[in-house]
Simulated assay, not measured.
Amino acid sequence: MICYEYILQFEKEVTYVWARQWSVMTYLYLAVRYFGISLAIICACWGGLFYMPEAVSRGIFLFMQWGISFYSCLTKVILIWRLYALYNQSKPVLYVLLGLFLPVVALYITVDILLWSRSSAISMQVIVITPNIKYCTAFFHTGPMLAIYTSIPIICYDILLVVLAIVVLRKHLKDRKGLKLKPNTFVVVIIRYHVVYFVLNLAIQIIMTVLWANLSTVAINLMFVFYDTAPYIIVPRLIISIWETHAKDNCVHVSTTFEDCVCWTSPPILEQHEMDPCVV
């Protein structure tokens, strides 16, 4: 699924990434795209029905768990970067978001150490289906409360990010209504994608908690299908779609101080009266 998605988006990636000047968002896109593909392939191999030695299986499992946490942090950095642009490159907003983001990173690291990395918390065991089919799987020796408690601050931080985005949208709609102008397409699109990010991150946190329940094998496998594919498809696709939307618009001026993240979309006649920033 991930490879098929990459093939579908490859032409757009060449057009909007490789054939244009690189920016901070370009590096973030490449990180989530190619690290996501690598992580998805490793997850698929580890979950496949072929044998891995216990030591190898444990190492791959730990890389997966730490990698998923790192990927989640990357998605939050993208949201912070876009909010920084939406708030007219406000340094206080950026510093507050980064200051609150550091404890979130610390929580991810704490969970990865206490819940996944300790030998007493997890063990790898061989599951034998037939004499010729066997594979390693993980067995947990700790309860779900650590994962549940640590997910609460992370969800609260996600709520803060989406609330700040909605506040920008309300102000933007109010200002445009006063000027009797239509809302800026890019502002609306970006806020919409912030909401999608929030729903995705919330779903992942819920799945991480629900996986501790005594669910059927079918239900667990369906959750893992979503957990191991959706983030690596949705996150880079949303970045590409914003660039594609911008490419179809007539852009008067591109800011050099904020690379390609700010675009002035007003007509030349109104440029002195209505400078309308949009995050690309």
Rank of each mutant, 00 (worst) to 15 (best):
M1K: 02
I2T: 13
E5H: 06
K12W: 01
Y16W: 09
S23G: 14
V24E: 10
Y29I: 11
A31L: 12
A31C: 05
Y34I: 10
G36F: 13
S38G: 13
L39P: 01
C43V: 06
G48H: 10
L49I: 07
F50Q: 06
P53V: 05
V56R: 07
V56G: 08
S57E: 04
F61M: 05
L62C: 02
Q65T: 02
S69Q: 02
S69M: 03
S72T: 04
C73M: 09
L74M: 15
V77R: 01
I80K: 00
R82Q: 06
N88D: 15
P92Q: 03
P92L: 05
L94P: 01
L97I: 05
L100C: 07
F101D: 01
L102E: 02
P103M: 03
V104D: 01
V104W: 01
V105M: 08
Y108V: 01
I109E: 00
V111G: 01
L114G: 02
S117P: 00
S120G: 05
Q125R: 11
V126S: 06
I127N: 09
N132E: 15
F139N: 07
F140G: 08
F140Q: 11
P144Q: 09
Y149H: 04
S151L: 07
P153E: 06
I155V: 06
V162I: 06
V162P: 00
V168S: 06
H172P: 05
L173E: 08
K180C: 10
F186C: 13
V187G: 08
V189N: 11
I190D: 14
I190T: 15
H194Q: 10
Y197Q: 09
V199A: 12
L202V: 10
A203R: 08
A203L: 14
I204L: 13
I207L: 05
M208D: 11
N214D: 12
S216Y: 05
A219P: 00
I220Q: 06
N221Q: 05
F224T: 00
V225L: 10
T229N: 13
A230S: 08
A230M: 07
I233K: 04
V235T: 14
R237I: 00
W243I: 03
T245V: 11
T245R: 10
A247I: 08
C251M: 13
T257I: 10
C261L: 14
S266R: 15
M275I: 10
P277C: 13
